[in-house]
Amino acid sequence: MDDVGSVVAFWMLSVMTLGAAVMVVAVRNLIYAVLFLILSFIGVAGLYLTLSADFVAIAQVLIYAGAVSVLILFAVLLTPRAARDNAETFLQVPGLVLATLVAVTIGAIALVTDWNEATRGAFPETAGAIGEALLDKYVLPFEIASVILLAAMIGAIVLVRED
């Protein structure tokens, strides 16, 4: 991947994703944090596109930016008397240290390891291949996932239902 477009796109999207993620930490208002989280999700979707994973990118926009974030917004609004200031607990410093250590460790591993890269091009079309894989090779996990979704749906309804 060394054509100009890909490189520019990668750097712009990375900066957008990580910058938005940092803003999630930094902003003082929880609603702003959710909106920056959405921006970060969209940046990740863009990164998927540069990796020629179009189906996953669209699914990311559809589910994360369109559905999960709206759920989060609803949760924030349904808890009106809770603090909306996006503050930290006493675990701020340990959390920061741990997060830095994890970043350094993973980064080091990522750079040091020889990943045995295959020289290969982009996928021509992923949607069909994913569909076939889901209904052929991964049909059992697929069914289990649907059961999980059903269970989650019923669970959420039972939890929040007024009676």
């Binding site: 994703t17 990580l18 993620a21 940092v22 999630v24 930490v25 929880l30 970060s40 990740v44 809770a82 603090a83 909306r84 996006n86 503050a87 930290e88 607990t89 675990l91 701020q92 340990p94 959390g95 920061l96 741990l98 997060a99 830095t100 994890v102 970043a103 993973i106």
Partner: peptide
């Protein structure tokens, strides 16, 4: 991104 998420999950109050 993972470490930012880790920090948020560990340290946020809400």
């Amino acid at each position: 991104l993972f470490s930012i998420g880790l920090y948020v999950a560990l340290a946020k109050r809400n």
